[in-house]
Write a protein that binds this DNA or RNA. Structure first.
Length: 224
DNA sequence: GACCAGGCACATC
DNA sequence: GATGTGCATGGT
């Protein structure tokens, strides 16, 4: 089914979300490194589970570059067990720290100085870091102006006819970054608004009353 | 007891 | 390049 009139620009979508949810300026995490760890632990996992894992890491003084460097992978896995996929994620945390050590001398300050595109390419080579995790780290831990695409983004904007078919991660990211100013603060809050809206979206229903976006008569998913 | 959640690597065609 | 599968916990 096609739309017969023009969609509001993405900036207006952002404004509507923001009026509904208020400013988020978001990512739960006290330090940039904690944000990086959270980005890995939350892969395909509810944040409530990640919180338990983060608490365990803190309780064992392991939520730091040094802490993860010195921990054995086995005990790391036990600490992060509540976040699921704990064996894989323990390996991923080790890989992240090894990358920071080997490529940036163990310094986030040095890492932050690397230009966006180069740093993104470096991150994508690290085991366990794919496009979304890389972009979450760049935007939320390092304040780089890059738009994070996630399952909520895909679902919501497909249902509201901004996306058709099954566009790639890159295609969706391009769409947002072409229409929006390259501003880290803006990308930060926009993505936060999308997550907030996504959480209140019922997965199986075309739309929810709470969704501040324009109500639609039917779902746009499944090639409609 | 299914089904799901802020993915990713790897195998296979 | 597209598609399928394993990874694993805790909440609904």
């Amino acid at each position: 089914m096609a739309r017969h009139h023009a969609l509001p620009p993405l900036s207006e979508v952002y404004q509507r979300l923001r009026e509904h949810f208020g400013h988020r300026n978001w990512w739960p995490g006290e330090t940039p490194f904690e944000v990086m760890v959270g980005a890995i632990l939350t892969q395909n996992t509810a944040w409530s589970n990640v919180e338990k894992a983060i608490r365990n890491l803190k309780a064992n003084n392991a939520l730091s570059i040094k802490g993860i460097r010195e921990a054995r992978e086995g005990e790391l896995a036990e600490w992060i067990r509540p976040s699921g996929y704990f064996n894989q994620k323990a390996r991923k945390l080790k890989a992240l720290v090894a990358f920071i050590d080997e490529t940036h001398g163990g310094s986030l300050a040095r890492m932050r100085k690397v230009p966006l595109e180069e740093l993104r390419a470096q991150l994508l080579r690290v085991n366990g870091i794919g496009p979304e995790t890389a972009d979450s780290i760049l935007l939320y831990a390092l304040d780089k102006p890059i738009f994070v695409v996630d399952a909520y983004t895909r679902r919501i904007f497909t249902r509201h006819f901004y996306l058709n078919g099954k566009p790639s991660y890159h295609a969706i990211q391009e769409r947002f970054m072409r229409e929006c100013p390259p501003d880290a603060e803006f990308y930060n809050d926009f993505h936060a608004q999308i997550v907030e809206a996504g959480k209140s979206y019922c997965r199986k229903r075309p739309l929810c009353a709470i969704c501040p976006l324009e109500p639609l008569p039917h779902s746009a998913e499944q090639g409609a």
